[in-house]
Amino acid sequence: MIERDAAGRALAHLVLIVGVLIVAFPIWYTFVASTQSVETILRPPLPLVPGGEFAENYGNAIFGGMSRIGGVGVGTLLFNSTVMALGIALGKIVISLLSAFAIVFFRFPFRMACFWMIFITLMLPVEVRIMPTYKVMVDLGLIDTYAGLILPLVASATATLLFRQFFMTIPAELVEAARIDGAGPLRFLRDILLPLSKTNIAALFVILFIYGWTQYLWPLLVTNDNRMNTIVIALKKMVSFADADTPWDMVMVTAILAIAPPVLIVVLMQRWFVRGLVESEK
């Protein structure tokens, strides 16, 4: 450090502690609420430490169906969210890897046209083509299906760009050596490119899983059946301030369960997460 500035460092710690408190507080507040009875939740101020209803509330949420959302259990909702997030993450990785492989390691007519076609999808987020995309889903009979939740979000310009960039750094000698040894393109992909791409894939996976899990507008449009809801959509449907018998304890438990899986992935795979975030945006 340049100056031996103990006071400055103490101030920095103070700023960080206040920052952490602000960042973490909303989640802590909801967690505390999820361990209280409905009566306590409805009588503010809420205590700052967890109450005694932890086991009861979480047990009810997980093992008893919730009447508010058509008797669908939290397990089904978590399952739907997991299928959607995994489907989107793995789907994007597979089709982008294959596209980038084709674009970098082959020469064929319309190569750059294909590249630009994929690239331009960056500029067409779901939000700007809501109605017509919805109509396509109705025509294809994909409403209330997992394919309907996943497919329209599975194209990825960002992932394709990232893999393309990475493949372009692979030395030509490596490709030549593989060809001299008699390896065809698919064998080269499986035995050389895939192992080299492992960290990139892990980094992208974290980012894309979170992208899939946190989707809102699309699952809202494409699911009518309560059994096909993701946990985020179901949570939104449960919350009603106008209604006197909103089961607030169950709402809080559902909120925590909607937050926990992606947060755990970010915290546990922090190294890949930071890498994926910083690199996929470049």
């Binding site: 960042v23 946190t214 992606p262």
Partner: peptide
Amino acid sequence: LIWPYAVA
């Protein structure tokens, strides 16, 4: 500081 990123 990084977990709000994962919250929908």
